[in-house]
Amino acid sequence: MSNTSGFLFSSLGKKVVMGATGLFLVTFLLVHCFINALIFFNDGGLTFNIGAHFMGTNWLIRTMELVLFFGLVLHIVQAAVLTRENQKARPVAYANPGGNVSSSWYSRSMGLLGTLLLMFLIIHLAHFWVKSRFTGIPTEDANGHEDLYAIMQETFKQLWVVVVYVLAMVSLAYHLLHGFQSAFQTLGLNHKKYTPLIKKTGVCFSIVIPLIFALMPLAMHFGWIK
């Protein structure tokens, strides 16, 4: 009596959706980070603009953009539903909720970290995505590509923007620090041989990717790249 339809509405099914969409978003971060890291060629954004042009015009990437939005919305909506259910599961709170002895603060704060990331995402999309997709980029570089690099330089001149981006990357690092390995556990991928490897990979990923991202506004603001 397998119950495939009930699966998505069960507690474990919802966890699987969170884990699977989470890992999908991890793959997005990886691609986003590599493409953006092209700014570090320090060639006035020529290479970066080629990458941005490819991402903006390739049909496969444009299709995946829709899948990405769907995955992101699913991750957020599911998180809201689960949080609501979890609050209902403990109607009377502990007077002494305990501390960090048995679990880490960031593993208990995924909702808060995620909300901060969502706020950042809205600002971030307004800065770049809306301009490149809808309102248009006014200038072109030497190759005749839309000069998204110039938009980046312009945006990161403002100190508050740099501060917001760096803080958001701190949130991202902690969100990933729990989320990466947690997704594997949720999908049932726990094994004495491989779990330590997954955990170490997760820690490296959670530090390296947000660090590279955080270096982008910093490098532009302080003129480390021109």
Binding site: L82, N86, V101, G188
Partner: peptide
């Protein structure tokens, strides 16, 4: 009951030290 977010507090507080591997197996 609420949903699992893999914080690991259950394993840390279990008097019989039941492992989180069981949750992965159930998943």
């Amino acid at each position: 009951f609420g949903n699992c977010t893999n914080t690991g507090a259950c394993e840390a507080e279990c008097p019989k030290e039941i492992s989180l591997e069981n949750i992965a197996r159930m998943n």
